[in-house]
Simulated assay, not measured.
Amino acid sequence: MFRALFLLFIIVPIIEIALLIQLSEVIGGVATIALIIVTAILGAKLVKQQGVGAMREAQVQMAQGQMPAKQMFTGICVIIAGVLLLTPGIVTDVFGFLLLTPAVRNKMAATFASQAQVRISQGMGQSTFSAEFHSHQQHQHSERREEHTTIEGEYERKE
């Protein structure tokens, strides 16, 4: 994991710098800088708009007693998109704008949900002995916890 992140932090800036140099040769240095500024401003505006919308939807769902999982995922995607859009570069802007697209987010959410279901179902494939053993251990642990969690006494506040 560390190696992948390290490579990501090395390779992505190199690609970004190379693309910005090539772009500046085609459209000019001032136009390239203006493009970077415009995408950052536009991205910040979209991030704010979609972030506030996701927060409102999450509050509505929580008020109805529902878990706002989709809105939480949307919020995470919007935060990541904001970081990507504020980072100068072409590749990061493309990925940032993709994360702000609801169709892309919905596809990602469906993919993550199906992977989570596969992992959960694979975890359920334990043998009966193993499941009973873990259940017995948890029961013993909870009994021990109940013995030691009650403290009796009197409380008096002195000011």
Rank of each mutant, 00 (worst) to 15 (best):
L86F: 13
T32H: 03
L7W: 07
H139S: 15
A18N: 06
M67S: 00
S114M: 06
G89K: 07
V78Y: 00
I37T: 12
Q66R: 14
A116Q: 01
S121N: 14
L100V: 09
Q140V: 12
Q49R: 15
R3M: 08
I33G: 08
F2E: 08
A58F: 03
I10F: 12
E156A: 06
G82F: 10
T101M: 14
A113P: 08
S130W: 03
T74W: 06
E143Q: 13
S135R: 12
M1Q: 05
G123C: 08
V52F: 14
A113K: 10
A103G: 02
T101A: 13
G96Y: 00
V104M: 01
T101N: 13
N106A: 04
E156S: 07
V30E: 09
V26E: 05
H141A: 11
Q140F: 10
A40Y: 05
L100K: 00
L19E: 02
T101H: 13
S130P: 03
L7H: 00
F129M: 03
F9D: 11
I41K: 10
E152P: 01
G89Y: 07
F112T: 09
R145S: 13
Q61W: 08
E146H: 08
L19K: 00
G125N: 05
I80S: 07
M108T: 02
M124P: 00
L99D: 07
R119N: 09
I15P: 09
V78I: 04
V78T: 00
P68N: 00
L35P: 00
V104G: 00
E154I: 01
H148Q: 05
L42D: 09
V91Y: 01
Q115R: 05
H141L: 13
H141I: 15
M67E: 00
D93F: 02
E16H: 04
L8M: 15
I27P: 11
A44L: 11
L23A: 14
L99G: 03
I79Y: 02
T101F: 09
Q140L: 14
V12N: 15
F133Q: 07
G75A: 03
T92A: 08
K107A: 11
I76F: 13
A18E: 06
G153I: 09
L98M: 14
M108E: 02
Q22Y: 07
A63H: 05
I80D: 03
K45S: 15
E132L: 09
Q50V: 07
G123R: 11
M62F: 12
V60K: 09
T74C: 07
T111F: 09
K48T: 15
A109H: 01
L8P: 08
H141R: 11
I151G: 02
L46P: 01
H141C: 06
T150V: 14
G153A: 04
R56Y: 10
V104H: 01
G29H: 04
A81P: 15
P88T: 04
I79A: 12
L7S: 05
G51S: 06
S135W: 07
A109E: 06
V12Y: 13
E16G: 07
Q22S: 11
A44T: 03
T149D: 14
E143H: 08
F9I: 12
